[in-house]
């Protein structure tokens, strides 16, 4: 294959030169030899060229042979039995293994590059969900964690405003009735259910409103809600009714505390999940493993090759 490519690239002059030299060294097939001799009979320039090449060859053959300046024998006291070299013995196997690993490594990288981005995000969300509970426990008011919290703040404020409007009803009615009267609780319950099973859709659903509401919530509002995030579930609605004399701030503070408790008890929150998936890119374990294996095999192969004589 390689020889064919090289021959294909050679000019006619190069091919003729090679044929002349091979003719001198008696390395042509009978058919090639006959063809060249016919050409030589016709072409005087070719004969002259052949004659010059012959002179060069004879000049090289007449170069004097030199005597070895000394004996190159080994001292038996210095050299013992030749040691076995396992890496050298295994060199052909190592070379094959390195080639195969390189192939699969490139394949893995190619598949990873060509894979749809959704699958990438999904796999990223899984380890994030495992860490969600512990991160929620910390309840650190970082910017990333504050995004879903901001959504919660706005939502709770909306609820409180509605509660103020129907204050008399809140005092008299039960918790179940209150849940029915607060229409905003319904979509949050749905979202909370999604958050309990962390998926890419759940994460993206939460990330979008959080980004939209970020600017509408002042930092002081974030400080009033130390919990990073928690979606209020329908179970929390019985606790919402309060006496009318309580201020909005006090209600909000209490709601925040309750939300923090629920976060640890009910479901992992999407807030750290989203943060983790954006901070730490997906680790392609297969590619990393193959890459490490390839590096090791390459080193061993190079050592073995170096020890080849």
């Amino acid at each position: 294959m390689w020889n064919f490519w090289r021959n294909w690239r050679k000019s006619a002059a190069e091919k003729q030169q090679e044929a002349l030299n091979a003719y001198l060294d008696n390395a042509l097939s009978p058919r090639q030899r006959a063809a060249l001799e016919a050409e030589l009979a016709r072409n005087e320039d070719l004969r002259r060229e052949l004659s010059q090449l012959q002179q060069v060859r004879e000049g090289l053959r007449q170069l004097p042979r030199r005597r070895a300046p000394r004996n190159f024998t080994l001292d038996p006291a210095l050299y013992g039995r030749p040691q076995r070299q396992p890496l050298v013995q295994a060199y052909p196997v190592l070379r094959l293994a390195t080639g195969l690993t390189a192939f699969f490594f490139v394949l893995a990288i190619a598949l990873q590059t060509l894979a749809p981005p959704r699958a990438t995000f999904f796999t990223a969300a899984e380890p994030a969900a495992l860490q969600a509970e512990s991160v929620a426990m910390d309840a650190a008011p970082t910017l990333a964690a504050a995004e879903p919290a901001a959504a919660m703040v706005t939502q709770v404020e909306t609820e409180i405003a509605q509660e103020t409007a129907v204050e008399t009803m809140i005092v008299t009615e039960s918790g179940e009735d209150a849940a029915e009267e607060v229409p905003a609780a319904a979509p949050f319950a749905e979202m909370a259910a999604e958050m309990a099973t962390p998926t890419a859709e759940g994460a993206s659903l939460l990330a979008a409103p959080a980004a939209a509401e970020r600017q509408s919530v002042p930092e002081s509002g974030l400080a009033a809600y130390p919990a990073p995030a928690a979606a209020p579930s329908p179970a929390s609605t019985p606790d919402i009714p309060r006496p009318a004399q309580e201020t909005q701030a006090a209600r909000a503070a209490e709601t925040g505390e309750e939300t923090a408790e629920m976060t640890t008890a009910v479901a992992p929150t999407p807030a750290p999940e989203t943060a983790v998936s954006t901070q730490f890119p997906q680790i392609p374990w297969l590619s990393v493993g193959l890459g490490i294996l390839l590096a090791l095999l390459t080193i061993l192969t190079l050592i073995g090759r170096r020890r080849l004589v």
């Binding site: 080994l74 030749p82 080849l308 004589v309």
Partner: peptide
């Protein structure tokens, strides 16, 4: 010559 001796296994 030294290398050849040490690599006689090859």
């Amino acid at each position: 010559f030294i290398a050849a001796y040490q690599a006689l296994d090859q």
